[in-house]
Design a protein around this nucleic acid. Structure first.
Lengths: 181, 181
DNA sequence: ACCTTAATGCAATTTCTTAGCGTTAGGCGC
DNA sequence: GCGCCTAACGCTAAGAAATTGCATTAAGGT
């Protein structure tokens, strides 16, 4: 579910954004395990059956909301040099994702194998890295392999966030970046 | 929930293993999203309330089962040399985890932040790697840093499994290992 | 402006979850 | 071994959530 809307204007869109907003509000206020569909329905002024029909179940709705929140609004900061660009991006990425809401979003996105939630969300970081790479090339720098940067830098960060087996200090993140180059 | 049992013999243990077995059976037969607590209860001859009391909810039960399945039964194979040891271990790890049930287990384990499911399961791979390291040292080889091996080899594999953004070929896994050394 | 139909609302039904209470059976001291 | 204590279970009823059919609303195209 969580289908692409066939009708993307008017009431349908209004309900989608209303539901999304309500979910985000609730995520701030309470624990995710306490959130229910009827609860979201009431707070957003929509009947539960509408939510079930459009999103299938709670986990898919949460995944949908998480993906929407992860969707980038701006390109990563331009610091003037490739390595510092990547470092800045990674530090921000690590901070966002390791926060309480960030981990919740990751869990929501990975929690449902249905839909392309995980795929979409990993595309976002891929695109950002691609932007950094092109920017580097435009400057005349050597550039870097985006796939390898994911293996060397992004993957370890995500791993440690998910399994909670290591503190994600800025120093550690920086060491990942410098190890990559 | 999914607490360590206070009483670990007799009926309680029998029920636990019966429920676990039933869950594993169901996972083979049907999609995870179709499995319900009452369903497990009936097939295992246990009342639903018992399951809810012991495990809290379905996701925690699934996580518990997944951790139990991931718990290693034997040390990794001894191939005679450190690099081939690690390669063999990683190839098996990648194959197990990228399978349908493997991905489901990962999702289950990561799906619940309650309990230490994720922590336990990442400890298993840590211990295996530590075994390989000690084995290497006993042979007089240089050994390797377990944490770094996770960053360089395990993390990329897990990342690509979870986000489904890349085919996990044996060649790719081998390249991760050789890149690490 | 009208027509078609996707999408929603409502309500009844089914299914799942929770909680109280009595019963069973480990584990422990004797 | 024998009996006590209580963790853990089964049963049942109440409560909450999920599903489904049918009527209604409102996009989007003609």
């Amino acid at each position: 579910m969580a289908r692409e809307m066939v009708r993307q204007g008017g009431r349908s869109a209004r309900i989608q954004s209303e539901v999304h907003r309500t979910v985000q509000d609730l995520l701030k206020t309470m624990d995710r395990s306490a959130i229910t569909v009827p609860m979201i329905a009431e707070k957003s002024g929509v009947t539960p059956s509408t939510i079930y029909r459009r999103w299938g179940d709670l986990s898919e709705l949460l995944a949908d909301v998480a993906v929407a929140r992860m969707r980038p609004i701006a390109d990563p900061e331009d610091t003037g040099a490739m390595e510092s660009d990547l470092e800045a991006f990674i530090l921000q990425y690590a901070e966002e994702m390791s926060s309480k809401v960030g981990r919740a979003m990751l869990a929501d996105v990975l929690g449902t194998m249905e839909g392309a939630a995980a795929g979409k969300c990993c595309q976002f970081t891929y695109q950002h890295l691609e932007t950094l790479r092109e920017r580097a090339l435009a400057r005349g720098e050597a550039g870097f392999d985006v796939g390898e940067s994911i293996d060397f830098v992004v993957a370890p960060i995500v791993y440690h966030i998910l399994f909670g087996d290591r503190e994600l200090t800025p120093d550690y993140c920086r060491s990942l970046v410098s190890r990559f180059f």
